[in-house]
Amino acid sequence: MDFSPACLRRLLAALLAAPFVCFAEEQCGGGAPMKSVSTFLGADLDYSVADHICCNNHRWAERRGYLNEPQVDLFSRLDPEAETVFYDSVCGIPLFVAPRGRSFDDFYEESLHHGWPSFRPEEMVSENVIIHEYGRMESKCGTHLGHNLPQGGVDRYCIDLVCIAGTPLDTTPIPLDESALTAEKFNATLYVSSAKENSGNDSQAKSRLITIIVGSLVGAVMVFMFAFVWYRKRKSAAKAEKMDSRQVEDDEKGDDWSRDLTEEDSS
């Protein structure tokens, strides 16, 4: 078995990452964000970031604070006296309506504090959003959105702006199930989200957390054991090498002593 440092590093990375691995699957129905994402509400969004984060990724996010960078400046482009509907950047279905159940200032401050648009259960169009294990979120179109990071026992959705910067489409380019709400069917004024009913009540959350903790501990213990065995093996090898070196020195001294005796006898 290879106990080299490189092998141990790879093993450690694999063990610690194992609980969080997401299996590869086609995102965005094989499509890409709509071109209008680049000019969402008159902002200058990076289309390449949208394409990567929304359609070729399950783990990473746009950089923290992107929503407040000068070329974006999201909240200066929103009407503080009205709700804004945010649409899927790929297929144009409604995903969030905000602010709802709180003030515009609360929406603004929470989003800036965390560094990404931050939504609450009342603001999510629950028919169009899927929350996977470990909080990963995507739309019914397969667009990566962000993660659910509950706070104070209430769900909080930390969402990538580039993935909710679409425009409404009456006909989506991606087939949807019957439960999904298209822009044509959606009435923001009358809509009531069902997400609040399940907020903070994920019965599997504790078991998933325990699985993550146990998996990480087991991984750490295994790495420690491998490292210990590797260390003992190296130490034993070094000791054996040192003993062999001493034996060689003793043999050489013995040969020198024998030669000296032979020379004395000859003389």
Rank of each mutant, 00 (worst) to 15 (best):
D73R: 06
L74H: 06
L74S: 07
L74F: 02
L74P: 02
L74G: 12
L74R: 02
F75Y: 14
F75T: 04
F75D: 11
F75E: 04
F75K: 01
S76M: 14
S76P: 11
R77L: 04
R77I: 02
R77A: 02
L78E: 01
D79I: 14
D79W: 10
D79S: 15
D79T: 11
P80M: 09
E81A: 14
E81W: 13
E81F: 10
E81T: 10
A82I: 02
A82L: 03
A82R: 13
E83K: 09
E83L: 04
T84G: 06
T84S: 10
T84K: 01
V85Y: 05
V85D: 05
Y87K: 00
Y87M: 00
Y87Q: 01
D88S: 04
D88N: 01
S89C: 11
S89L: 11
V90E: 05
V90K: 02
V90P: 06
V90A: 14
V90F: 02
C91K: 03
C91Q: 10
C91H: 07
G92T: 14
P94L: 12
L95V: 10
V97T: 14
V97L: 12
V97R: 12
R100Y: 00
G101Q: 09
G101N: 09
G101S: 15
R102G: 10
R102I: 08
R102E: 11
R102N: 09
R102Q: 14
R102H: 15
F104S: 06
D105N: 10
D105L: 12
D106W: 00
D106E: 15
D106R: 03
F107N: 10
F107Y: 08
F107D: 11
F107L: 10
Y108D: 06
Y108L: 15
Y108G: 07
Y108S: 09
E109L: 12
E110A: 13
S111V: 02
S111L: 09
S111T: 03
S111A: 15
L112E: 09
H113R: 13
H113F: 14
H113P: 00
H113W: 06
H114A: 09
H114L: 15
H114R: 10
H114V: 15
